[in-house]
């Protein structure tokens, strides 16, 4: 992949056994009028080439902030990153000069968002917006960029691409708009595509089509995918690994099948039990009690303890660390083994 990238990162050899992307001890604070909100509290995650990682969590769990921090598009201020490293091919994105960082966006890491209508610029034709990637990053002229845009629109299965290349975002349906976003994001064949709730705003049937498209594109190009979602159902088919986030930390990470078979954290346990299943007909659906904590005033001890059905005294005073509990799976619970072994 790195040889197709216009970034001259290949001069500097990646760390020997390094991952494609490695986030270490990432913290993000938001400075608000009411105080400092700790949105991300020490996130560690990694991604290898061709891998799909699903980041799962409720709204406010910090999954989107993590993605935007990796992407480098957080508004700073109010956001600040006091500590942490984000290594992309062994290089820390956080200490990189702005110009180099900018050049990573698009060819290195690309991103699509939840609401494609507001995420596309309303006053420019879609073909112009897709073609802009080639004009800015590769210096293509207008007509070449437009032909490239048409090819991309065809690749993401937009019918009559040639005729619609000059249409504006409001003239497309929701699903088509998300396809345009995807076309724009994959234009420069990025090594990583971050998809932030890409299907939440869409109808169920269209959701499936867009997810299929993402899966297909990943197969074809070999890019890695970070899929951010609150929907466990979306994850199962496409993800290799899952990282579950709660209150700004990763509470569990595991291979997708391991996690579905046996959760390693009480929060994940709750999430899985709250999915309706056919064989549960007649039973009451489980719901995690309480609300996520206020990021301005985090509880003592484990952030999840006020909602945890396995809570014990130690949880109220001592915050557990994210630790390897089985080969390839980590959990941030004092009693992870107990949860796993049940």
């Amino acid at each position: 992949m790195s040889d197709s990238s216009p970034l001259q990162l290949s001069d500097r050899p990646p760390e020997a056994e390094g991952h494609l992307l490695q986030v270490e001890d990432l913290h993000v604070d938001f400075h608000t009028r009411d105080g400092v909100a700790h949105a991300i509290n020490g996130v560690d995650l990694h991604l290898d080439a061709g891998e799909t990682l699903a980041v799962l969590g409720e709204s406010g769990s910090g999954k989107s902030v993590t993605a935007q921090a990796i992407m480098g598009i957080l508004d700073m201020p109010p956001a600040a990153i006091p500590t942490g490293r984000i290594l992309f091919r062994g290089q820390d994105l956080l200490t990189m000069p702005d110009e180099e960082r900018r050049a990573v966006r698009g060819p290195g890491i690309a991103m699509i968002f939840q609401d494609a209508l507001s995420s596309l610029n309303p006053v420019f034709p879609v073909g112009w917006q897709i073609g802009e990637m080639f004009r800015v990053h590769r210096g293509l002229n207008r007509s070449d960029a437009r032909s490239a845009a048409v090819r991309l629109m065809e690749r993401v299965n937009i019918p009559a691409a040639k005729q619609r290349v000059n249409a504006y975002p409001h003239q497309f349906s929701g699903g088509m708009r998300q396809r345009i976003m995807i076309a724009m994001a994959i234009a420069l064949e990025p090594s990583i595509l971050i998809a932030d709730e890409p299907t939440t705003a869409l109808d169920v049937t269209v959701q499936a089509q867009v997810m299929d498209l993402l899966g297909q594109l990943r197969e074809e190009s070999g890019m890695s995918l970070i899929l951010i979602t609150h929907d466990l159902g979306v994850v199962a088919d496409i993800a290799d690994r899952i990282a579950v986030m709660y209150a700004g930390s990763i509470v569990e990470s595991a291979g997708v099948h391991d996690l579905y078979r046996r959760p390693g954290h009480p929060y994940t346990e709750g999430l899985l039990q709250s999915i309706p299943r056919l064989d549960m007909k007649g039973e009451e659906l489980f719901a995690i009690k309480g609300l996520p904590p206020n990021l301005l005033r985090m509880p003592e001890g484990c952030p999840f303890h006020p909602r945890c059905h396995r809570v014990r005294d130690v949880c109220r005073v001592d915050e557990p660390a994210l630790r390897e509990v089985r080969p390839g799976r980590r959990s941030k619970c004092h009693f992870a083994e107990e949860v796993l072994d049940e």
Binding site: G72, I73, D75, G106, A110, F113, N121, E132, V136
Partner: peptide, 18 residues
Amino acid sequence: LGSDYVRTARAKGLPQSR
């Protein structure tokens, strides 16, 4: 400047001036 399409433009790796 705080709208979604500006976030997209930044995610596209465009220079701030653009």
